[in-house]
Design a protein around this nucleic acid. Structure first.
Lengths: 341, 341
DNA sequence: TTGAAAGCGCTAACAG
DNA sequence: CTGTTAGCGCTTTCAA
């Protein structure tokens, strides 16, 4: 009663049908070697007995897993959960399963997970690195060993890699230029940092626009502080404390914008009436606070899809593949409620 | 150059150190058989060469994977991404990796994923079923085969299972009773359905309270429609079209509440000034729209943790384990901004 | 304390 | 078209 009933094996089917294991194995994979009749008989029996192949054994002998490994910093985060979902969907469509691991923004966990995935013999890895990842040696080694690897959104600054990112610099530039053209005299930037490509490039795009238009920068209004809710919340509170409020804020992420919104709410500052905010994010987020922010639209779904496309290319053409960096365009989405303000 | 360099195997280490594979294998696992000295030498070399055990081989021979399989309907959803994250974290703390699969609310995909996970020889499964899952045969079979399985939040209505759920009925009851006690005469309920335990029980809790207080129900204000944003959005629009607006709405989920919010926004109805809304959700969501909704607080983190705790119990004590249904309490969180209204 | 042999369940290569 | 043989890389007896 309480003993685990042994699952049915290839061999069991073989014994029942009085054929060899190989015949069964081939029949189940629709191998042309096997007659249609035999194939049908085998499949029927397999179905009847609820036969499930043992993945471990299968992968061990075929040295192929049909698995894609994924490492992301977080799950419960608008941007990442959207990317994850699109990667899972795209992989699934191509008969690949995805094994997800979470680095929790910790470089050490990231490394451990990468090793775990390698030891699971993933056919390929898709990675979005942590903010603190500075040692790229392991990625270097992976590339040398010709294990397909693609970075999404957050990528190490390193030659010879394949990546799918968005045009962060251009997005930040456009969002800043928009504000300048609109005639705002008080422009702030909240969130981000220069530790990682996305922060670096958004900062660069911002400053580039400011410089191009000879805009004088108020250092009190330029605040890094990371990419989370707290970056926005604390950033806005600190600006408020200094007395002078900006008219426009470029928020580094959607969570940061929400943090700003919350701080503003607490302080009696109205968004978007008193301050217009643009943040990086996805237009699907707009449901959450209708028509309050502008967005530098990040095509999350496409990011995931392209990453999968790339990794499959690497998997399927290991000999001819050349590293590729795909940069997706962003769009500036302006909310009507703001323009009316 | 373009040839995959073979990963180092146990045997390679053995050859180098002039000992047998077994010695290496044991040494790496700190087996007491092996002398401290040998163990140290082995580990040193393994480190140096970057040896990574082959998971497939390991699992195949040990018939244990240290893997927990997880099946959820969605990822990019407040509730699920929070649950997923907490399950990953709890499993990780216990040296288990989690393999996540997404059913996309489709019963067929769910079944396929379950089979995939079984074939991967998961040590246990954690599942939150889809809204359309009506055939529980596969779960029945899993239980019969003594594969540990735990349902979180969404569980089939079936004896002998282990599950971790929240007290949906009680939460809905409390949220409804609160509105009645506050003196509201116009109470609505938007979202949900009776296909699945969570919808059924929330409906029951709502009607129970209404009945207990002899409250006359306006059928126009009782709208099912599922658990997503659109349920709230369409639900509110349809109520609005009928002319009479409620004073209070019990929204079935947080996305549904956001849908209501968006519809109200478009129609010029103010939340929370014109209508007070309570929704099922997690208090961490409150950052998103500060102090606008009340919450029937679902302890997402605890849900995940308890599910992992349960599954580990089943894995570690297969002989003595008895099915267990854990029901977590909800709290009603009232927003101050509402009480001031 | 160490090692040789057998096997986990499957697939690939070759033979019949 | 079917079967035999030999592994995949590791762990688990059991013997030395």
């Amino acid at each position: 009663m309480n003993r685990k009933t042994k699952p049915i094996r290839l061999e069991d089917l073989a014994n029942i049908l009085k054929v060899s294991k190989v015949t069964i194995s081939k029949a189940l994979r629709d191998h042309p070697d096997i007659s249609a009749e035999t194939t049908a008989r085998v499949k029927e029996l397999a179905d009847e007995l609820g036969y499930l192949p043992n993945f471990m054994a299968k992968n061990l002998s075929s040295l192929k897993s049909n698995l894609i490994g994924l490492v992301v910093p977080e799950i419960a985060h608008f941007f990442f959960s959207a990317i994850i979902e699109s990667i899972f969907a795209a992989a699934s469509k191509n008969k690949y399963e995805t094994v997800l691991t979470v680095s929790e923004e910790k470089a050490e966990k990231e490394k451990n997970h990468v090793q775990f995935l390698l030891s699971m013999k993933m056919d390929g890895l898709i990675i979005s690195i942590t903010q603190e990842t500075t040692d790229f040696a392991i990625f270097q080694k992976i590339i040398q060993h010709n294990v397909p690897i693609v970075f999404v959104d957050r990528a190490p600054d390193m030659p010879g890699i394949s990546s799918v990112t968005v045009n962060d610099r251009g997005g930040a530039f456009a969002a800043t230029e928009y504000a300048i053209n609109k005639g705002y005299n008080k422009i702030a930037k909240i969130g981000g940092n220069n530790n990682i490509n996305i922060g670096r490039q958004r900062n660069e795009g911002f400053f580039e626009a400011m410089k191009l238009y000879d805009y004088k920068i108020n250092p009190d209004w330029i605040i890094d502080g990371g990419f989370g809710h707290e970056a926005g919340y604390n950033g806005f509170k600190s600006i408020y404390k200094n007395g002078k409020l900006p008219e426009y804020i470029l928020a580094i992420t959607y969570p940061a914008a929400l943090g700003i919104y919350e701080a503003a709410y607490e302080l009696g500052v109205r968004i978007p009436q008193d301050i217009e905010i643009t943040c990086f994010g996805n237009n699907t987020f707009k449901h959450i606070i209708p028509t309050v922010f502008n967005f530098v639209d990040q095509p999350t779904q496409k990011l995931g899809e392209e990453a999968v496309k790339l990794i499959l290319k690497m998997i399927n053409h290991p000999k001819t593949y050349e590293p590729e960096k795909i940069v997706l365009d962003t769009k500036l989405l302006i909310n009507n409620s703001n323009t009316i303000t």
